[in-house]
Design a protein around this nucleic acid. Sequence first.
DNA 1: CCTCAGGGCTCTC
DNA 2: GAGAGCCCTGAG
Length: 281
Amino acid sequence: MLEFSIENNADLQLAHIFECGQCFRWKKQNDESYIGILKNGIIKIKEEKNHIIIKTNIKNKEEILEYFDLNRDYGKIKKQISKNDKAMKQAIDYGYGIRILNQDPWEMLISFIISSANNIPRISKTIESISKAYGKKIKFEGEEYYLFPTPNELAKASVQDLRKLNLGFRDKYVYLASQAVAKGEIDLDKISKLTYKEAKKELTKISGVGAKVADCILLFSMKKAEAFPVDTWIKKVMNELYVESENIKQISDFANKRFGAYAGIAQQYLFYWRRENKKLD
DNA sequence: CCTCAGGGCTCTC
DNA sequence: GAGAGCCCTGAG
């Protein structure tokens, strides 16, 4: 068991990080801490006044710092993307503690295939049942958790097996992707080393992966901060603030021009702000 | 009962 | 290459 603390700072707020739509396996506990299931283990994390306490059975501390993107200077990025932009300033003020989590590409591939025409509670539930059925069971502080299955583990599931887990029409996409990754026909590690554009092209060859899902994988697991996933919420907020268009590509082109290399991080602030304020409609 | 939810595929024109 | 209909399922 590894236990350590990190200094709290103005660019880190757990609620913002876990509720901006980038992850599905973090749960808030009764004591206000969060427990998350990562590729290699469990993390319990809690905010105190001046620092954040992390308890985990993951052995490598560096891996955790990298997961929380602590090597990136968000202050600088915020300044850059909000220059002469009141709306962005407002969104950043609201979700000031957002950080991009560097998650596992394989898990993101499957998770965002499942996210298609789906809602967050159901996505989380489906991922949990997949993990329960095909992932390894591990214990942490007396409780049992299931890791997300490896490609080989998930490749054991037939389309019918997946249908039973309520994946709906996405079952065949998950099946094909699992087979391809398990057999080595798709090499996510290799794809992650390509440029943003090339990597996106490769990812969208996968059945069930279009522009939006590809951008999520690129942003949340392949360190491509220029990826700007356009979902219905982003479409809405972009229409309200920047560009009147129904065309997804037009919207993402606009974002790339305006926010450049950090379009994806801008996306997170906009998404969180718009979604949390939906009641204002 | 209908609609639609953090899309993508396929067929059509 | 743009648009429409369809895909599973569960919640509202």
